[in-house]
């Protein structure tokens, strides 16, 4: 269990270094929902190539390194209805709130942005309530 915390810390450091790279290199906030959402709704048309390159690298790197680890399991739900509803909520919610775990969480909290801190507290609380309701009360996940 505790080795998983160390992997978490190490992986977290890499995530933070990636965010620092984008900030110092390109002057951009590393927010996954913003970078992706801008391609979907057209608001990120002017710098689409760098968004696409970032997302392709995010997609490709785990694909390349996962064979080095054994027993890789993402434990994703096998209920497509749950995933469709969840995907819609995440897509709409992150774009309306202007950020997700990487933008509001990592990049916002680290600069003591009140918006980032409040958003993070709200989505963690909502996520906790969601797991409580859907796992322990309705037992669908």
């Amino acid at each position: 269990m505790q080795s998983e915390w160390l992997w978490g810390l190490g992986g977290g450091l890499l995530i933070g270094l990636g965010a620092a790279m984008l900030l110092w290199g390109n002057g951009k906030i590393m927010g996954a929902s913003g970078l992706l959402g801008g391609l979907v709704d057209g608001s990120g048309r002017s710098d689409w190539a760098e968004r696409a390159v970032f997302l392709i690298a995010t997609f490709a790197t785990p694909l390349v390194i996962y064979p080095l680890f054994n027993e890789v399991d993402t434990h994703i739900s096998s209920n497509w209805l749950v995933l469709v509803v969840a995907g819609l909520l995440v897509g709409i919610g992150t774009r309306i709130a202007n950020g997700c775990t990487s933008g509001h969480g990592v990049c916002g909290i680290s600069r003591f942005s009140l918006r980032g801190i409040v958003a993070t507290l709200i989505y963690i609380a909502a996520g906790g309530a969601s797991v409580l309701v859907f796992r322990h009360m309705l037992e669908v996940i």
Binding site: V82, L83, V85, L89, T94, A97, I122, V131, I141
Partner: peptide, 12 residues
């Protein structure tokens, strides 16, 4: 937005 996101995050 954060409430919607959190609900979907927990669900999936």
């Amino acid at each position: 937005g954060s409430v919607l996101f959190g609900m979907g995050w927990g669900l999936s």
